[in-house]
Amino acid sequence: MKFEYNVEGGDFLNAGNASGNIKKVLKKLNVDTGVLKRVVVALYEAEVNIVAHAYRGKITADISPKRIEIVLDDEGPGIPDIGLAMQQGYSTASTKVREMGFGAGMGLPNIKANVDDMKIETEVGKGTKLTLSFNLE
């Protein structure tokens, strides 16, 4: 089962639409509540990251009985130093992002804490592709 959503950079009004929709789908599919919570927290943080840092992006969720794989592929500035970005408290977020209740340097560490597997592919000046995997068995 595949779902696709487009995300616009800077559109804070709709930030979380994709995560909210995927949450509804997973609830209908009776996905274990513990896994469901991990998926929505990681996905929402990652969706907010696209809105906060990128120009635009696409979220693809692939749900099978054994696993959930979510790819967040954005066109944006990329991450120059992934090690630094993974450090809790490090942030390059704008004032606008902070006003929205984010930008404290907790996004990527919080995503990592909630997934079974995470892959970051990034190119400075082009964008970032984040692949999040969750096991259902």
């Binding site: 929402y44 943080e45 929205m100 209740g101 984010f102 907790m106 996004g107 804490a113």
Partner: peptide
């Protein structure tokens, strides 16, 4: 007031 904290 920090939503990232709420999410943890």
């Amino acid at each position: 007031d920090l939503m990232s904290d709420v999410l943890t």
